[in-house]
Amino acid sequence: MTAPGIALTEPIGPAGAPLVVLAHSLGTGPLIWEPVVPQLITDYRVTLLSLPGHGAAPVPGDAFSMEELADAVAESVRGLADSACFAGVSIGGALALTLALRHPDLVGRAVSIASAASLGSAEHWNARAATVRAQSTSVLIAASAQNWFAPESLEREPELIGRILHALQDTPDEGYARCAEALAGYDLRDRLGEIRVPVLAIGGAQDSVAPEDRQDELVAGIARARKVMIEDAAHQPPAESGAAVSAALLAFFGEEQA
């Protein structure tokens, strides 16, 4: 099986600074990190990851698992640094947790944002993939606009949120579908105890997809995990409340390793 293709931007930030890898949510892109990146690049080198079939990453021709995706990301990141901190939203958070499990030598710290140890049933994601292949990602826009963003976020960040929804519409259908099928097989609930690196679970207080109890599940299962809840955010916290997410990331990444 061919490894899924991803894309990493050229890192920006001070030469020699620790590397931070930021992964986006399904059907969006690195633009969700725009409010956060300027806060991080003072102290870190930052690279933005595009999932298979999103943005600059090639549309996958074959199915892949989250484990295979994590291995492909790890191989690419090793070309940039010996270790890195990872943060991701939704499927990007699932990727961060999978990397922490499979590549603890590479992952210094992992941040799961608006994510969980599992994200819906296999039936849900396989049906979603079939729907997108039949009707395109455009069919998802109305529900995503409602589920992804807190009402105050829509008032505070209308321009960015509009661009995010356009990114969903522009995501290649097969790229979205293949990532959805990878989520169909994603379930780390029985393996959380194997994750040894520090983990931060960031949740949106208004997130119906990965609510606070799913963040509590991560904290209970991972020895070195804790949570931060963002009050005025739902399922896309970096785009909705960039200042709060930036502060949480800087505090977490800046801690001395135990």
Rank of each mutant, 00 (worst) to 15 (best):
I6Y: 10
L8R: 01
P11Y: 14
P14C: 09
A17D: 15
L19V: 14
V21L: 08
A23H: 11
S25K: 14
L26N: 09
L26G: 07
G27L: 05
T28I: 10
T28C: 10
G29E: 00
P30Y: 05
W33P: 01
E34K: 12
V37E: 14
Q39L: 07
T42H: 06
R45H: 07
V46A: 07
T47P: 01
T47S: 08
L48H: 00
S50N: 05
P52F: 04
H54M: 14
G55D: 00
A56Y: 06
A57F: 00
P60V: 14
F64M: 07
L69Q: 13
E75M: 12
S76L: 13
V77G: 01
V77D: 02
R78Y: 11
G79A: 10
L80F: 12
A81N: 10
D82Q: 02
S83N: 03
A84G: 11
V89Q: 03
I91S: 11
G93Y: 02
A100Q: 03
L101I: 01
L101R: 03
L101P: 00
H103I: 07
L106T: 03
V107K: 03
A110Q: 06
V111T: 04
A114S: 13
S118E: 03
L119F: 08
W125G: 01
W125I: 02
N126P: 00
N126T: 10
A127L: 13
R128M: 07
A130S: 14
R133Q: 05
Q135A: 14
T137S: 11
T137Y: 04
L140P: 02
A143P: 12
F149H: 07
S153W: 05
S153Y: 08
E155V: 07
E155W: 05
R156W: 06
P158L: 04
P158E: 15
E159M: 07
E159N: 09
L160C: 08
L160Y: 11
I161D: 12
I161P: 01
I164R: 00
Q169F: 09
D170N: 04
G175V: 11
Y176N: 05
A177N: 12
R178C: 03
C179V: 07
E181H: 14
D187W: 10
L188P: 05
L188G: 10
D190N: 12
R191Y: 13
G193K: 06
I202W: 02
G203C: 03
G204Q: 12
G204Y: 05
Q206K: 01
S208Y: 11
A210Q: 04
R214H: 12
Q215E: 14
Q215V: 12
D216K: 14
L218A: 03
A223I: 10
R224S: 13
R224H: 13
K227L: 14
V228E: 01
E231D: 11
D232R: 15
D232E: 07
P237C: 10
P237Q: 09
P238E: 15
P238W: 10
P238L: 13
A239W: 01
G242P: 00
A244F: 11
L250T: 06
F252C: 09
G254Q: 13
E256V: 06
A258R: 08
